[in-house]
Every structure is written in C-alpha cells, then in structure tokens.
Amino acid sequence: MGIFDRFKDHARSKGKDMSDTAERGVNEKTGNKYTGQVDDAQQRIEGTTGLKGDRPDRPDRPDQR
C-alpha cells in the first residue's frame, strides 16, 4: 500500500466521520423528526462522493473517444 492509498483511506475515514457527525447534529436540531429523510440524504451523499467504499474508483480523466 502506497502513501497515496493510505492518504485516500484516511480522507475517506475522516469524511465518513464528518458525515455521521452532521447527521447526528441535524437529527438533534430537528428532534429526530426527519430521521428517515436525513439518513436517506446521507446515504445518497456518501454514495455520490465515494465515502461508502462500494463505488469503484473513477479515472482521473474521462475516456476521450
């Protein structure tokens, strides 16, 4: 594992921690009234940004055809 792989793993871990903290904060502010919607939004954001870990790494540049 190279230094960039470790950096990427660390950044992904920090991003996930921040996402979880934000979810808890929103749920506290709303009195857990919108827990389902907040969780759905968090899952979508994590999927889009690659924080879930199930998204394959995208190439740096799109294919030029």
Results as ranks from 00 to 15, higher is better:
residue 1 M to W: 07
residue 1 M to H: 09
residue 1 M to D: 10
residue 2 G to T: 14
residue 2 G to Q: 05
residue 2 G to C: 09
residue 3 I to K: 09
residue 3 I to G: 01
residue 4 F to Q: 13
residue 5 D to R: 13
residue 5 D to Q: 13
residue 5 D to G: 13
residue 6 R to I: 06
residue 6 R to T: 09
residue 6 R to V: 08
residue 6 R to L: 15
residue 7 F to E: 08
residue 7 F to Q: 10
residue 7 F to P: 01
residue 9 D to V: 04
residue 9 D to N: 13
residue 9 D to M: 08
residue 10 H to M: 12
residue 11 A to D: 09
residue 11 A to T: 08
residue 11 A to W: 05
residue 11 A to F: 04
residue 12 R to M: 10
residue 12 R to W: 01
residue 12 R to I: 04
residue 12 R to E: 01
residue 12 R to C: 01
residue 12 R to A: 14
residue 13 S to M: 04
residue 14 K to G: 00
residue 15 G to Q: 07
residue 15 G to T: 06
residue 16 K to R: 15
residue 16 K to Q: 09
residue 16 K to W: 06
residue 17 D to H: 11
residue 17 D to T: 12
residue 17 D to S: 12
residue 18 M to K: 14
residue 18 M to L: 15
residue 18 M to W: 08
residue 18 M to H: 09
residue 19 S to M: 14
residue 20 D to W: 05
residue 22 A to H: 04
residue 22 A to N: 03
residue 23 E to M: 14
residue 23 E to K: 15
residue 23 E to F: 02
residue 23 E to S: 14
residue 24 R to M: 08
residue 24 R to A: 13
residue 26 V to C: 06
residue 26 V to R: 03
residue 26 V to T: 07
residue 27 N to D: 12
residue 27 N to E: 14
residue 28 E to D: 11
residue 28 E to H: 09
residue 28 E to N: 13
residue 28 E to Q: 11
residue 28 E to M: 13
residue 30 T to G: 03
residue 30 T to K: 06
residue 31 G to Y: 04
residue 32 N to H: 13
residue 33 K to G: 00
residue 33 K to W: 02
residue 33 K to P: 01
residue 33 K to D: 02
residue 34 Y to L: 06
residue 34 Y to A: 02
residue 34 Y to K: 11
residue 36 G to Y: 03
residue 37 Q to N: 05
residue 37 Q to K: 10
residue 37 Q to G: 00
residue 37 Q to C: 00
residue 39 D to W: 02
residue 39 D to S: 12
residue 40 D to N: 11
residue 40 D to T: 11
residue 40 D to I: 00
residue 41 A to Q: 06
residue 41 A to M: 11
residue 41 A to K: 05
residue 41 A to F: 09
residue 42 Q to C: 05
residue 42 Q to V: 12
residue 42 Q to H: 06
residue 42 Q to E: 14
residue 43 Q to C: 01
residue 43 Q to L: 07
residue 44 R to A: 05
residue 44 R to T: 03
residue 46 E to A: 03
residue 46 E to V: 02
residue 46 E to S: 10
residue 47 G to Y: 05
residue 47 G to W: 06
residue 47 G to E: 10
residue 48 T to N: 10
residue 48 T to Q: 12
residue 49 T to V: 14
residue 49 T to Y: 02
residue 49 T to Q: 12
residue 49 T to M: 15
residue 49 T to E: 10
residue 50 G to Y: 07
residue 51 L to T: 02
residue 51 L to I: 07
residue 51 L to S: 00
residue 52 K to F: 01
residue 52 K to M: 10
residue 52 K to Y: 01
residue 52 K to C: 00
residue 53 G to A: 03
residue 53 G to D: 05
residue 54 D to A: 01
residue 54 D to E: 09
residue 54 D to M: 02
residue 54 D to N: 14
residue 55 R to I: 05
residue 55 R to D: 04
residue 57 D to F: 02
residue 57 D to Y: 06
residue 57 D to K: 15
residue 57 D to S: 15
residue 58 R to H: 05
residue 58 R to G: 02
residue 58 R to E: 12
residue 59 P to I: 00
residue 59 P to C: 02
residue 59 P to D: 11
residue 60 D to N: 07
residue 60 D to A: 15
residue 61 R to V: 07
residue 61 R to I: 04
residue 62 P to H: 07
residue 62 P to Q: 07
residue 62 P to G: 06
residue 62 P to A: 08
residue 63 D to E: 14
residue 63 D to S: 09
residue 63 D to I: 03
residue 63 D to Y: 04
residue 63 D to P: 01
residue 63 D to H: 04
residue 64 Q to Y: 10
residue 64 Q to A: 08
residue 65 R to M: 03
